[in-house]
Structure formats: structure tokens, C-alpha cells
Design a protein around this nucleic acid. Sequence first.
DNA 1: GACAAACACGAGTCGTCGCTCGCATTCTGA
DNA 2: TCAGAATGCGAGCGACGACTCGTGTTTGTC
Lengths: 235, 235
Amino acid sequence: MPTHQEQEQPRRRQARGERRIAQLLEAAASVFTSTGYAAASTNAIAREAGVSPGTLYQFFPNKEAIAIELGQRLMADMRAAYGQALAPIDPATPLEQAVAAAVDRFIDFNCHNPVFFTLMHGPDVPGRMAEEHDALHNTLITRVEDLLSPLLPDRPAAAVTRIAHVCMALYMAGLELVLASEGDEREAYVQELKDVLFRYLDPLVGDRLRDAQATAATTATPGAAASTAASNPTP
Amino acid sequence: MPTHQEQEQPRRRQARGERRIAQLLEAAASVFTSTGYAAASTNAIAREAGVSPGTLYQFFPNKEAIAIELGQRLMADMRAAYGQALAPIDPATPLEQAVAAAVDRFIDFNCHNPVFFTLMHGPDVPGRMAEEHDALHNTLITRVEDLLSPLLPDRPAAAVTRIAHVCMALYMAGLELVLASEGDEREAYVQELKDVLFRYLDPLVGDRLRDAQATAATTATPGAAASTAASNPTP
DNA sequence: GACAAACACGAGTCGTCGCTCGCATTCTGA
DNA sequence: TCAGAATGCGAGCGACGACTCGTGTTTGTC
């Protein structure tokens, strides 16, 4: 593979070019989703987009750049559409609802953009692509940490990071099941994923709530401290 | 097209050949683990084993066959070493300990055989390899179902299957985190994985316990014993 | 020892894939 | 209008990887 070190200045794109880029990225998303990144051939992407291989390389220096650009646009889309879902949780809303809302939003995004899962999950990422992959992953982890830290004020930072990693891993695992199923089955898996996350986090957060309620109880009525996890009648 | 039943009769292997096969499988495990199945080249496997490419093809018809044989031996090893871990749980042992024991055993196996995770988890599996992959996966799912069904007697089969899939997915997700870390961090992730599985399953199994207690309570008041769907003889 | 079968070698074949190059066509701006 | 830039094409190059083949070596058996 000949290395191109040339820092070429941004070419002035025509409207047609922008359209082609969007078309190529859409085709790439389709091919990546169905065959994975490594197994996807640039010729197949060009064919899917209805252009010649040469045209593809008019807009992307190499195969990696396609995936990177796709990843960046995907992240931008996610931030634009669901950024507020990752804002700190209002402490007034119950954890169960907060988890359910976050899961619903992300599941929705991933169902509409299945490439996202492929790019995040695929271990078949060579070289510089892995960096982008990690950057994407770390961005999400940091978001989850920010989301969790107000709920876990008395835990060391390392523990919060670990919990965030576990949450991400659980979410990705659940997402895989969700994407692999359809209809009612899919709904059922979504519910299971919510249950998993809620039941995992509730005892951790529960400490804080119980502490808060205990302090409140010293000044007010003692008795409503038993907010246990079994408030969820799953059919 | 007439199906060529040309099954070549098993070649008479010498001791040297068996040794080479073991050597090659070990090398393949190493290469698969570090680069993944798709990116692993047969020449690299042969080099790792210290033999020529031609020698490799003396014992395996193609690259796929290496992975398949490896998968089969791995499953056999697992069955031999940990088969009893997948035997039905003694209902007397608390769920938390049962989960912890199962997780410990499997984590141990996977830490000593990291290829297993690569072969199970890799989406880069072409053609007939995917069948073997699925077979392996389904075997494990069935085992988990057998493990869970006595704990979930009043759930429909579909729900038990779904719960088994969720457990497998959670375990695989946790395993990825565990294998990616070391030392204390690894121990911490193992504990998190146990917590996740226990907290997920406890409320489900808890229903059964509560039902059992309810049945025991109604036994004092005769006549209403038919309310419980599955009268579970307490073992 | 003789013969065949199993084992071992490694240069070479063949197909695929990322990517290029020369040339044609379309658009933009002055 | 027309020069030059952007876009578009597709045969083909170079590299790499799965797999083969002709040949030589070791092992088991009579």
C-alpha cells in the first residue's frame, strides 16, 4: 500500500460532490453492516453506490477514511439528536425511569443506524481506525461517567469508571440481542436490558438514597426507608 | 448436481502427525487470539508452529477446518473440565453462590483458553464456520436453559430461552472486560459480573421463592391450593 | 533391506482487494 | 465563451493470502 503523506488542502466541493459523498457513505454503511468492516471491499461499496472505484477514491483517500468519516458523522448525529439524553440526570426522576429513557433513546438510534454497532463492536479494525474507535468509545464512557457520578458521590473515581465500563458493556451486549431480533421479541429484549441495567445500578445508587433518606428520617418521619428493588412486575 | 460423497477415509496418522496437529492447533490458537480469525494467515500459523505451509495442508484441508477442529477440541475440553458446573443447580445452595461458582469456573477456563472467546465472539466468520459457531453457542444456551429452568418453573419456555440468551450475552460482555484487564482490576470486573448476573436473576428466582412461600402459607388454609400454576414439589 | 505410506518442504499459482492512472465529461466563474 | 477545476470512468497494477505440486525425507511393515 503506497503511503500518501501529502497534506492536500481541502478541495472545493461542488454540490454534486457532496451528494456523491453522502451516497458513498450510505452505501458504505450498508456494506459495513452486512459484511463487517474488514470484509467490505471498496469495489463493493462503489458498486452499491452505483459509481466506479475511481470515483470513490476521488472523495476518500483510502478505505479507512470512509469508516472514519462515517463514524464522525454518526457521532455528530447522535450528539445532535440525543445529546440531552446524556445530560446529567435530574435527581428527582426515579432511576428506573432514567435508565429506561436512556435505553429507549439509544436503542432507537442504533436501530436506525445499525452501522454504529458494527463500527463500535467490530474487532476487525486495523491501524489508525482503532484510534477513532477508541475515541468514540471513550467519549461514550466519559458521558456515562458524568451521568453516574452525581448518583455515586462517595465512590472513588476508579470505581465510577469501572461501573461506567460495565454499563457500556451491558448495553452493547443487550443491543446485540435487540438488533438480532424483531417485533415482540425485540421489545422483550429491550425490557430485559432495562431490567439488567436498573437492577445492577439500583443497589449502588440505593446506598445514596438510603443515606439521604436516613438523614431525612432523623429530622422527619422514620418509616418509608424500604424502597426495595422488587417494584417491577415483569410479565 | 450429484453430491460427491467422497469422504476420504481417515488417513492413518503416525505419532509424529498427531504431534504436528496439536502443534499446529496451538499455533493457530495463538495467532487467532492475537489477530482474530479473518486476519490470521495460514502462513503465519505455519510459521508460528515452525513448519512450512505445505505441511499445514497435510493435516487440514483449509483454514476453516483449523478453526473448526480447534472449536471442537475446546468444547470437549470444557465439557471434560467443567461439565459438572453446568449440571442442574442444587436448589439448596443460594443463588448468589451458584452464580459466583459458575462464573469463576468459566472465567478460569476462558482465561486459560482465550481463543474460545475469539472464536465465539468474532463476527468475522465466513460460511460453514458460522454453523460451528452457532452450534457451539446453542450448546451453551441449552445448558444455561437447563440450569435455569428448575429455578423458573412457572415461566413459559420462550421466556426461559430469552433469559438464557440474556445471561449468555451478559457473561460474554463481562468476559470481554475481564480479559482486557489484569490483576486487581480483573478481580474487580469478575465481581461486577457476578453482581450483574445475580441481581438480574434474583428477582426472577425470587418470584419462585415467594410463590413457594405463598403455597406453603395456603397449605394451612385448605381449598385454595390450586391457585399456583405449577405446583413445585420442594426438593 | 525394500517398499509404501506418511511426513515435510517451499517456490509457485491463482484469485482478490486496495488503490492508481489516463482520459472523458460536467460544472463554475470571469 | 472558454479555461480550468471538479467529477466520473474502468482497466489494470502491485501486494498479499489461501492453497498446490513436485520432490525429498522419515517411519512402519514384511
